[in-house]
Design a protein around this nucleic acid. Structure first.
Length: 421
RNA sequence: GGAGAGAUGGCUGAGUGGUUGAAAGCACCGGUCUUGAAAACCGGCAAAGGGGCAACUCUUUCCUGGGUUCGAAUCCCAGUCUCUCCGCCA
Protein backbone atom coordinates (compact mmCIF):
# COMPACT_ATOMS: atom_id res chain seq x y z
CA UNK A 1 0.00 0.00 0.00
CA UNK A 2 1.17 3.44 -0.79
CA UNK A 3 1.30 6.38 1.54
CA UNK A 4 -1.44 8.73 0.37
CA UNK A 5 0.44 11.70 1.78
CA UNK A 6 3.42 10.85 -0.35
CA UNK A 7 1.22 10.55 -3.42
CA UNK A 8 -0.48 13.85 -2.63
CA UNK A 9 2.79 15.73 -2.18
CA UNK A 10 4.76 14.08 -4.97
CA UNK A 11 2.16 13.19 -7.53
CA UNK A 12 4.33 13.74 -10.61
CA UNK A 13 7.21 11.73 -9.22
CA UNK A 14 4.84 9.02 -8.12
CA UNK A 15 3.20 8.91 -11.53
CA UNK A 16 6.52 8.69 -13.28
CA UNK A 17 7.86 5.94 -11.03
CA UNK A 18 4.73 3.89 -11.43
CA UNK A 19 4.68 4.33 -15.18
CA UNK A 20 7.87 2.26 -15.31
CA UNK A 21 5.99 -0.73 -14.06
CA UNK A 22 3.57 -2.85 -15.95
CA UNK A 23 0.65 -1.13 -14.41
CA UNK A 24 -2.79 -0.54 -15.76
CA UNK A 25 -4.40 1.20 -12.83
CA UNK A 26 -5.77 4.62 -13.60
CA UNK A 27 -4.18 6.92 -11.11
CA UNK A 28 -5.49 10.20 -12.46
CA UNK A 29 -8.49 10.11 -10.18
CA UNK A 30 -6.51 9.77 -6.99
CA UNK A 31 -6.00 13.44 -6.26
CA UNK A 32 -9.64 14.31 -6.81
CA UNK A 33 -10.88 11.52 -4.64
CA UNK A 34 -8.38 12.36 -1.95
CA UNK A 35 -9.47 15.97 -1.93
CA UNK A 36 -13.12 15.03 -1.82
CA UNK A 37 -12.48 12.54 0.95
CA UNK A 38 -10.74 15.08 3.13
CA UNK A 39 -13.40 17.71 2.51
CA UNK A 40 -16.09 15.29 3.66
CA UNK A 41 -14.09 14.34 6.73
CA UNK A 42 -13.76 18.01 7.57
CA UNK A 43 -17.51 18.60 7.29
CA UNK A 44 -18.33 15.50 9.23
CA UNK A 45 -16.01 16.39 12.08
CA UNK A 46 -17.41 19.88 12.39
CA UNK A 47 -20.88 18.43 12.85
CA UNK A 48 -19.65 15.84 15.29
CA UNK A 49 -18.14 18.59 17.35
CA UNK A 50 -21.46 20.43 17.48
CA UNK A 51 -23.22 17.30 18.56
CA UNK A 52 -20.70 16.53 21.22
CA UNK A 53 -20.98 20.01 22.68
CA UNK A 54 -24.74 19.69 22.94
CA UNK A 55 -24.42 16.38 24.66
CA UNK A 56 -21.94 17.79 27.13
CA UNK A 57 -24.10 20.79 27.91
CA UNK A 58 -27.02 18.50 28.79
CA UNK A 59 -29.26 21.27 27.60
CA UNK A 60 -32.61 19.64 26.95
CA UNK A 61 -33.69 22.41 24.58
CA UNK A 62 -30.91 21.47 22.20
CA UNK A 63 -31.67 17.75 22.07
CA UNK A 64 -33.91 18.04 19.05
CA UNK A 65 -31.22 19.89 17.11
CA UNK A 66 -28.79 17.20 17.99
CA UNK A 67 -31.05 14.67 16.35
CA UNK A 68 -31.08 16.68 13.15
CA UNK A 69 -27.32 16.89 13.19
CA UNK A 70 -27.15 13.14 13.53
CA UNK A 71 -28.99 12.60 10.29
CA UNK A 72 -26.73 15.08 8.50
CA UNK A 73 -23.69 13.28 9.83
CA UNK A 74 -25.06 9.98 8.61
CA UNK A 75 -25.48 11.33 5.11
CA UNK A 76 -22.03 12.87 4.91
CA UNK A 77 -20.21 9.94 6.42
CA UNK A 78 -21.90 7.54 4.02
CA UNK A 79 -20.61 9.58 1.13
CA UNK A 80 -17.19 9.83 2.71
CA UNK A 81 -17.02 6.08 3.14
CA UNK A 82 -17.88 5.48 -0.50
CA UNK A 83 -15.21 7.96 -1.55
CA UNK A 84 -12.64 6.39 0.70
CA UNK A 85 -13.36 2.88 -0.55
CA UNK A 86 -13.09 4.02 -4.14
CA UNK A 87 -9.78 5.70 -3.37
CA UNK A 88 -8.41 2.64 -1.62
CA UNK A 89 -9.55 0.40 -4.41
CA UNK A 90 -7.41 2.34 -6.86
CA UNK A 91 -4.38 2.66 -4.60
CA UNK A 92 -4.38 -0.95 -3.45
CA UNK A 93 -4.03 -2.10 -7.06
CA UNK A 94 -0.93 0.01 -7.74
CA UNK A 95 2.39 -1.86 -7.52
CA UNK A 96 5.25 -0.79 -5.31
CA UNK A 97 7.57 2.02 -6.36
CA UNK A 98 10.84 0.59 -7.70
CA UNK A 99 13.97 1.43 -5.79
CA UNK A 100 16.08 4.06 -7.54
CA UNK A 101 18.90 1.66 -8.40
CA UNK A 102 16.59 -0.72 -10.26
CA UNK A 103 17.10 -0.60 -14.03
CA UNK A 104 14.18 0.83 -15.99
CA UNK A 105 12.50 -1.30 -18.59
CA UNK A 106 9.22 -2.85 -19.57
CA UNK A 107 10.30 -6.41 -20.27
CA UNK A 108 12.85 -8.95 -19.17
CA UNK A 109 15.42 -7.90 -21.79
CA UNK A 110 16.21 -4.97 -19.54
CA UNK A 111 17.12 -7.19 -16.60
CA UNK A 112 20.78 -6.92 -15.72
CA UNK A 113 23.14 -9.79 -15.08
CA UNK A 114 25.07 -9.17 -11.87
CA UNK A 115 27.10 -12.31 -11.52
CA UNK A 116 27.71 -15.64 -13.21
CA UNK A 117 29.05 -18.41 -11.07
CA UNK A 118 29.83 -22.11 -11.24
CA UNK A 119 31.32 -24.22 -13.97
CA UNK A 120 29.12 -25.48 -16.76
CA UNK A 121 30.56 -28.89 -17.40
CA UNK A 122 30.54 -29.91 -21.03
CA UNK A 123 29.37 -33.43 -21.62
CA UNK A 124 30.41 -35.77 -24.38
CA UNK A 125 26.79 -36.78 -24.91
CA UNK A 126 23.54 -34.94 -25.44
CA UNK A 127 22.09 -34.07 -22.03
CA UNK A 128 18.58 -35.30 -21.43
CA UNK A 129 15.81 -33.26 -19.94
CA UNK A 130 14.75 -33.95 -16.39
CA UNK A 131 11.47 -35.48 -17.53
CA UNK A 132 13.20 -37.86 -19.91
CA UNK A 133 15.57 -38.86 -17.15
CA UNK A 134 12.84 -39.12 -14.56
CA UNK A 135 10.47 -41.13 -16.67
CA UNK A 136 13.21 -43.45 -17.76
CA UNK A 137 14.14 -44.04 -14.15
CA UNK A 138 10.48 -44.61 -13.38
CA UNK A 139 10.66 -41.94 -10.71
CA UNK A 140 8.76 -39.06 -12.30
CA UNK A 141 5.25 -39.97 -13.38
CA UNK A 142 3.23 -37.29 -15.12
CA UNK A 143 0.68 -39.68 -16.60
CA UNK A 144 -0.23 -41.00 -13.21
CA UNK A 145 -0.81 -37.48 -11.96
CA UNK A 146 -3.04 -36.80 -14.94
CA UNK A 147 -5.03 -39.88 -14.05
CA UNK A 148 -5.50 -39.05 -10.37
CA UNK A 149 -5.60 -35.30 -10.51
CA UNK A 150 -5.09 -33.54 -13.80
CA UNK A 151 -2.60 -31.51 -15.77
CA UNK A 152 0.35 -29.72 -14.19
CA UNK A 153 0.88 -32.20 -11.37
CA UNK A 154 3.45 -34.91 -10.96
CA UNK A 155 4.20 -37.99 -8.92
CA UNK A 156 7.77 -38.06 -7.68
CA UNK A 157 8.72 -41.56 -6.61
CA UNK A 158 11.35 -43.65 -4.98
CA UNK A 159 14.87 -42.23 -4.82
CA UNK A 160 13.86 -38.98 -6.45
CA UNK A 161 11.17 -38.49 -3.82
CA UNK A 162 13.86 -39.12 -1.28
CA UNK A 163 16.09 -36.57 -2.93
CA UNK A 164 13.30 -34.03 -2.93
CA UNK A 165 12.86 -34.55 0.79
CA UNK A 166 16.63 -34.47 1.31
CA UNK A 167 16.82 -31.15 -0.49
CA UNK A 168 14.23 -29.57 1.79
CA UNK A 169 16.05 -30.81 4.85
CA UNK A 170 19.43 -29.76 3.55
CA UNK A 171 18.27 -26.26 2.71
CA UNK A 172 16.49 -25.75 6.00
CA UNK A 173 19.54 -26.98 7.90
CA UNK A 174 21.76 -24.50 6.10
CA UNK A 175 19.40 -21.63 6.77
CA UNK A 176 18.76 -22.46 10.40
CA UNK A 177 22.26 -23.56 11.38
CA UNK A 178 24.40 -21.25 9.28
CA UNK A 179 22.22 -18.31 8.27
CA UNK A 180 20.29 -17.56 11.44
CA UNK A 181 16.77 -18.23 10.28
CA UNK A 182 14.12 -19.70 12.55
CA UNK A 183 12.24 -22.68 11.20
CA UNK A 184 8.47 -22.48 10.97
CA UNK A 185 5.92 -25.06 9.95
CA UNK A 186 2.98 -22.85 9.04
CA UNK A 187 -0.61 -23.33 7.91
CA UNK A 188 -0.98 -23.77 4.18
CA UNK A 189 -4.23 -21.83 4.12
CA UNK A 190 -4.27 -18.06 4.31
CA UNK A 191 -7.17 -15.75 5.02
CA UNK A 192 -8.31 -13.21 2.48
CA UNK A 193 -6.90 -10.49 4.64
CA UNK A 194 -3.46 -12.10 4.78
CA UNK A 195 -3.49 -12.48 1.01
CA UNK A 196 -4.23 -8.78 0.80
CA UNK A 197 -1.40 -8.01 3.21
CA UNK A 198 1.32 -9.42 1.02
CA UNK A 199 -0.28 -8.16 -2.19
CA UNK A 200 -1.74 -11.27 -3.82
CA UNK A 201 -5.17 -9.72 -3.46
CA UNK A 202 -7.11 -7.98 -4.78
CA UNK A 203 -5.27 -7.82 -8.08
CA UNK A 204 -4.13 -11.40 -8.59
CA UNK A 205 -7.10 -13.39 -7.42
CA UNK A 206 -7.11 -15.35 -10.68
CA UNK A 207 -3.76 -16.88 -9.82
CA UNK A 208 -4.95 -18.22 -6.47
CA UNK A 209 -6.71 -21.40 -5.42
CA UNK A 210 -9.58 -20.56 -3.14
CA UNK A 211 -10.76 -23.14 -0.62
CA UNK A 212 -14.41 -23.98 -0.68
CA UNK A 213 -15.59 -23.81 2.91
CA UNK A 214 -18.68 -25.37 4.41
CA UNK A 215 -19.82 -22.15 5.91
CA UNK A 216 -19.82 -19.03 3.86
CA UNK A 217 -17.94 -16.56 6.02
CA UNK A 218 -14.33 -15.61 5.53
CA UNK A 219 -12.60 -16.68 2.36
CA UNK A 220 -9.50 -18.83 2.51
CA UNK A 221 -6.82 -19.52 -0.06
CA UNK A 222 -4.12 -22.10 -0.53
CA UNK A 223 -0.83 -20.28 -0.14
CA UNK A 224 0.93 -19.58 -3.46
CA UNK A 225 4.14 -19.22 -1.43
CA UNK A 226 5.04 -19.42 2.25
CA UNK A 227 5.86 -15.72 1.97
CA UNK A 228 2.17 -15.00 2.51
CA UNK A 229 1.81 -16.82 5.77
CA UNK A 230 5.28 -16.05 7.16
CA UNK A 231 5.12 -12.34 6.43
CA UNK A 232 1.66 -12.02 7.91
CA UNK A 233 2.97 -13.31 11.21
CA UNK A 234 3.68 -9.67 12.06
CA UNK A 235 0.36 -8.35 10.82
CA UNK A 236 -1.29 -5.80 13.15
CA UNK A 237 1.65 -5.90 15.47
CA UNK A 238 4.06 -3.45 17.04
CA UNK A 239 7.37 -5.23 17.32
CA UNK A 240 10.09 -4.37 19.78
CA UNK A 241 13.23 -3.04 18.17
CA UNK A 242 15.23 -5.71 19.97
CA UNK A 243 13.25 -8.43 18.22
CA UNK A 244 14.40 -7.26 14.78
CA UNK A 245 15.54 -8.56 12.44
CA UNK A 246 13.14 -11.46 12.38
CA UNK A 247 14.34 -14.17 10.01
CA UNK A 248 12.06 -17.08 9.22
CA UNK A 249 12.35 -20.13 7.00
CA UNK A 250 9.73 -22.68 6.05
CA UNK A 251 9.51 -25.53 3.61
CA UNK A 252 6.00 -25.76 2.28
CA UNK A 253 4.03 -26.84 -0.73
CA UNK A 254 2.92 -23.90 -2.85
CA UNK A 255 -0.19 -23.75 -4.99
CA UNK A 256 -0.60 -21.64 -8.09
CA UNK A 257 -3.11 -21.59 -10.87
CA UNK A 258 -0.53 -20.43 -13.40
CA UNK A 259 -3.28 -18.49 -15.08
CA UNK A 260 -1.91 -16.83 -18.17
CA UNK A 261 0.83 -19.42 -18.54
CA UNK A 262 -1.09 -21.67 -20.92
CA UNK A 263 1.32 -23.38 -23.24
CA UNK A 264 4.37 -22.36 -21.21
CA UNK A 265 6.54 -25.16 -19.86
CA UNK A 266 3.85 -27.76 -20.35
CA UNK A 267 6.34 -30.61 -20.30
CA UNK A 268 8.10 -31.56 -17.15
CA UNK A 269 7.87 -30.19 -13.66
CA UNK A 270 9.13 -26.67 -14.24
CA UNK A 271 5.70 -25.15 -13.89
CA UNK A 272 3.23 -27.02 -11.73
CA UNK A 273 0.10 -26.21 -9.77
CA UNK A 274 1.79 -27.61 -6.68
CA UNK A 275 5.45 -27.55 -5.74
CA UNK A 276 7.70 -27.46 -2.71
CA UNK A 277 9.64 -24.37 -1.88
CA UNK A 278 11.91 -23.37 0.98
CA UNK A 279 11.05 -19.79 1.68
CA UNK A 280 13.02 -17.12 3.52
CA UNK A 281 11.30 -14.13 5.08
CA UNK A 282 12.93 -11.24 6.90
CA UNK A 283 11.22 -8.53 8.89
CA UNK A 284 13.67 -5.68 9.41
CA UNK A 285 14.00 -2.03 10.30
CA UNK A 286 12.84 -0.19 7.22
CA UNK A 287 16.22 1.49 6.83
CA UNK A 288 17.95 -1.85 6.42
CA UNK A 289 15.98 -3.40 3.57
CA UNK A 290 18.63 -3.26 0.89
CA UNK A 291 21.37 -4.65 3.14
CA UNK A 292 19.08 -7.47 4.10
CA UNK A 293 18.29 -8.13 0.45
CA UNK A 294 21.98 -8.67 -0.27
CA UNK A 295 22.27 -10.91 2.74
CA UNK A 296 19.20 -12.93 1.84
CA UNK A 297 20.30 -13.37 -1.76
CA UNK A 298 23.63 -14.65 -0.53
CA UNK A 299 21.81 -17.15 1.66
CA UNK A 300 20.01 -18.41 -1.44
CA UNK A 301 23.06 -18.63 -3.67
CA UNK A 302 24.94 -20.38 -0.88
CA UNK A 303 22.72 -23.40 -1.47
CA UNK A 304 23.65 -23.49 -5.15
CA UNK A 305 27.33 -23.11 -4.28
CA UNK A 306 27.14 -26.04 -1.92
CA UNK A 307 25.34 -28.11 -4.52
CA UNK A 308 27.87 -27.07 -7.13
CA UNK A 309 25.27 -25.91 -9.59
CA UNK A 310 26.10 -23.20 -12.13
CA UNK A 311 23.92 -20.13 -11.84
CA UNK A 312 23.66 -16.47 -12.50
CA UNK A 313 22.24 -13.62 -10.51
CA UNK A 314 20.26 -10.90 -12.19
CA UNK A 315 18.52 -7.78 -11.01
CA UNK A 316 15.03 -7.41 -12.43
CA UNK A 317 14.09 -4.26 -14.27
CA UNK A 318 11.14 -2.14 -13.17
CA UNK A 319 8.67 -3.81 -15.50
CA UNK A 320 9.58 -7.39 -14.61
CA UNK A 321 9.27 -7.16 -10.84
CA UNK A 322 6.46 -8.58 -8.77
CA UNK A 323 3.67 -6.39 -7.47
CA UNK A 324 4.98 -5.79 -3.96
CA UNK A 325 8.70 -5.58 -4.70
CA UNK A 326 10.88 -2.49 -4.72
CA UNK A 327 13.93 -4.46 -5.82
CA UNK A 328 14.33 -8.07 -6.86
CA UNK A 329 17.22 -10.41 -7.59
CA UNK A 330 16.44 -13.53 -9.52
CA UNK A 331 18.78 -16.48 -9.27
CA UNK A 332 18.78 -18.63 -12.37
CA UNK A 333 20.25 -22.10 -12.52
CA UNK A 334 21.77 -23.67 -15.59
CA UNK A 335 19.68 -26.34 -17.29
CA UNK A 336 21.78 -28.30 -19.79
CA UNK A 337 18.81 -29.75 -21.69
CA UNK A 338 17.59 -26.29 -22.53
CA UNK A 339 21.02 -24.70 -22.70
CA UNK A 340 19.80 -21.82 -20.67
CA UNK A 341 19.39 -20.42 -17.21
CA UNK A 342 16.04 -20.84 -15.49
CA UNK A 343 14.71 -19.10 -12.41
CA UNK A 344 15.24 -21.05 -9.21
CA UNK A 345 14.95 -18.26 -6.68
CA UNK A 346 13.61 -14.77 -6.46
CA UNK A 347 14.59 -12.49 -3.60
CA UNK A 348 12.74 -9.24 -3.08
CA UNK A 349 12.72 -6.31 -0.79
CA UNK A 350 9.22 -4.92 -0.43
CA UNK A 351 10.23 -1.90 1.66
CA UNK A 352 7.23 -0.81 3.70
CA UNK A 353 4.76 -1.70 0.97
CA UNK A 354 3.50 -4.87 2.62
CA UNK A 355 3.78 -3.62 6.18
CA UNK A 356 1.45 -0.73 5.34
CA UNK A 357 -1.08 -3.21 4.06
CA UNK A 358 -0.60 -5.41 7.10
CA UNK A 359 -0.20 -2.59 9.59
CA UNK A 360 3.02 -4.08 10.92
CA UNK A 361 5.18 -1.66 12.86
CA UNK A 362 8.06 -1.40 15.27
CA UNK A 363 9.26 1.23 17.71
CA UNK A 364 12.36 2.88 16.31
CA UNK A 365 15.17 4.36 18.40
CA UNK A 366 13.17 7.58 18.78
CA UNK A 367 10.34 5.50 20.18
CA UNK A 368 8.12 6.26 17.18
CA UNK A 369 5.93 3.63 15.59
CA UNK A 370 7.13 3.10 12.04
CA UNK A 371 6.36 0.51 9.41
CA UNK A 372 8.63 -2.52 9.16
CA UNK A 373 10.57 -3.53 6.09
CA UNK A 374 9.68 -6.93 4.68
CA UNK A 375 11.67 -9.22 2.42
CA UNK A 376 11.11 -12.62 0.97
CA UNK A 377 13.11 -14.99 -1.14
CA UNK A 378 13.21 -18.59 -2.19
CA UNK A 379 16.01 -20.51 -0.72
CA UNK A 380 15.34 -22.41 -3.00
CA UNK A 381 12.49 -23.76 -5.09
CA UNK A 382 12.85 -27.43 -4.23
CA UNK A 383 11.28 -28.92 -7.36
CA UNK A 384 13.42 -26.85 -9.66
CA UNK A 385 16.51 -27.67 -7.65
CA UNK A 386 15.71 -31.33 -8.11
CA UNK A 387 15.45 -30.72 -11.84
CA UNK A 388 18.74 -28.86 -11.89
CA UNK A 389 20.54 -31.65 -10.07
CA UNK A 390 19.07 -34.29 -12.35
CA UNK A 391 20.14 -32.47 -15.46
CA UNK A 392 23.53 -31.23 -14.30
CA UNK A 393 24.55 -34.41 -12.52
CA UNK A 394 23.34 -36.88 -15.14
CA UNK A 395 25.76 -39.31 -16.70
CA UNK A 396 25.49 -40.93 -20.06
CA UNK A 397 23.51 -43.99 -18.99
CA UNK A 398 20.79 -41.80 -17.48
CA UNK A 399 21.89 -42.23 -13.89
CA UNK A 400 22.21 -39.25 -11.61
CA UNK A 401 25.17 -38.66 -9.34
CA UNK A 402 24.08 -37.41 -5.94
CA UNK A 403 25.80 -34.17 -4.89
CA UNK A 404 28.20 -34.69 -1.99
CA UNK A 405 26.32 -32.48 0.45
CA UNK A 406 23.09 -34.41 -0.05
CA UNK A 407 24.52 -37.84 0.58
CA UNK A 408 24.26 -37.66 4.37
CA UNK A 409 20.56 -36.98 3.86
CA UNK A 410 20.19 -40.01 1.56
CA UNK A 411 21.71 -42.91 3.43
CA UNK A 412 25.05 -42.01 1.90
CA UNK A 413 24.01 -43.16 -1.55
CA UNK A 414 26.13 -41.67 -4.29
CA UNK A 415 24.05 -42.38 -7.35
CA UNK A 416 20.47 -42.83 -8.52
CA UNK A 417 20.09 -45.30 -11.33
CA UNK A 418 17.43 -47.64 -12.57
CA UNK A 419 19.74 -50.60 -12.05
CA UNK A 420 20.34 -49.89 -8.40
CA UNK A 421 16.68 -49.42 -7.61
C1' G B 1 -21.20 -31.21 17.78
C1' G B 2 -23.24 -29.83 23.32
C1' A B 3 -22.61 -26.39 27.81
C1' G B 4 -20.43 -22.20 29.94
C1' A B 5 -16.83 -17.85 30.26
C1' G B 6 -14.51 -14.00 27.92
C1' A B 7 -12.45 -10.07 24.13
C1' U B 8 -10.30 -2.87 27.17
C1' G B 9 -3.78 0.88 25.42
C1' G B 10 3.08 -2.54 23.60
C1' C B 11 1.66 -6.32 27.67
C1' U B 12 -1.24 -7.55 32.34
C1' G B 13 -5.69 -5.71 34.17
C1' A B 14 -9.83 -2.16 36.71
C1' G B 15 -14.04 -0.11 35.02
C1' U B 16 -22.22 -1.40 33.99
C1' G B 17 -25.23 5.27 30.83
C1' G B 18 -22.50 11.80 31.31
C1' U B 19 -14.77 15.59 31.87
C1' U B 20 -13.41 7.57 31.28
C1' G B 21 -9.08 8.24 26.18
C1' A B 22 -10.05 5.11 30.01
C1' A B 23 -7.47 3.32 37.34
C1' A B 24 -3.30 0.32 38.66
C1' G B 25 0.98 -2.55 37.45
C1' C B 26 4.75 -4.04 33.84
C1' A B 27 7.56 -2.46 29.69
C1' C B 28 9.52 1.92 27.43
C1' C B 29 11.60 7.22 27.42
C1' G B 30 13.66 11.52 30.35
C1' G B 31 15.62 13.11 35.11
C1' U B 32 17.58 12.79 40.43
C1' C B 33 20.88 9.71 43.18
C1' U B 34 25.59 6.58 42.00
C1' U B 35 32.69 6.18 40.20
C1' G B 36 29.39 3.10 36.82
C1' A B 37 25.18 -0.06 36.98
C1' A B 38 21.07 -1.88 39.71
C1' A B 39 17.55 -0.37 43.28
C1' A B 40 14.79 3.79 44.95
C1' C B 41 12.43 8.39 43.84
C1' C B 42 10.31 12.28 40.29
C1' G B 43 8.23 13.13 35.45
C1' G B 44 6.53 11.49 30.60
C1' C B 45 4.22 7.71 27.67
C1' A B 46 -2.19 4.87 22.98
C1' A B 47 -3.25 4.87 17.89
C1' A B 48 -5.34 6.53 13.33
C1' G B 49 -7.18 10.55 10.68
C1' G B 50 -8.48 15.96 9.60
C1' G B 51 -7.09 21.39 9.91
C1' G B 52 -2.67 24.68 10.67
C1' C B 53 4.02 27.13 8.50
C1' A B 54 3.97 26.17 13.57
C1' A B 55 2.69 26.31 18.73
C1' C B 56 -1.61 23.82 18.61
C1' U B 57 -6.37 21.95 17.71
C1' C B 58 -10.47 18.80 16.26
C1' U B 59 -12.60 13.92 15.22
C1' U B 60 -12.67 8.77 15.73
C1' U B 61 -11.27 4.29 18.24
C1' C B 62 -12.40 -0.14 24.65
C1' C B 63 -13.22 -7.47 19.04
C1' U B 64 -16.44 -6.39 14.31
C1' G B 65 -21.16 -4.66 12.34
C1' G B 66 -25.98 -2.81 13.43
C1' G B 67 -29.50 -0.63 17.18
C1' U B 68 -31.41 2.26 21.72
C1' U B 69 -30.10 7.38 23.75
C1' C B 70 -29.20 14.34 23.64
C1' G B 71 -25.02 11.14 25.38
C1' A B 72 -22.44 4.09 25.12
C1' A B 73 -16.29 0.71 26.98
C1' U B 74 -20.87 0.36 29.87
C1' C B 75 -27.74 -1.31 27.55
C1' C B 76 -30.00 -4.42 23.12
C1' C B 77 -29.30 -7.55 18.48
C1' A B 78 -26.13 -10.18 14.99
C1' G B 79 -21.36 -11.98 13.84
C1' U B 80 -16.03 -13.26 14.62
C1' C B 81 -12.36 -15.03 17.65
C1' U B 82 -10.33 -17.05 22.32
C1' C B 83 -10.56 -20.06 26.79
C1' U B 84 -12.75 -24.07 30.03
C1' C B 85 -15.71 -28.62 30.44
C1' C B 86 -18.12 -32.76 27.69
C1' G B 87 -18.27 -35.59 23.04
C1' C B 88 -15.52 -37.01 18.63
C1' C B 89 -10.84 -37.54 16.44
C1' A B 90 -4.93 -37.90 13.43
Amino acid sequence: MHDIKFIRDNFDIFKKKISNRNNSASIENILNLDKKNRQLIFEKEALEKQKKDISKSKDKKMFEISKEISSKIKKISDEQLITKIELEKIISAIPNIPHSDVPEGTSEDKNKIIEIKGEIKSKNFKPKSHYELGEKLGMLDFDLATKTTGARFVFVKDKLAMMERALSNFMIDVHTLENGYKEISPPLFASENSMYGTGQLPKFENDQFEIKLDKGDERKFLIPTAEVILTNIVKNQIIKLNDLPLRLVASTPCFRKEAGSYGKDTRGMIRQHQFYKVELVSIVENTKCLDELERMTNCATMILDKLNLPYRKIVLCTGDMGFSAEKTYDIEVWLPSESKYREISSCSSCGTFQSRRMNSRYKNSKNENVFTGTLNGSGLAVGRTLIAIMENYQIEDGSIIIPEVLRPYMNNMDKISSISS
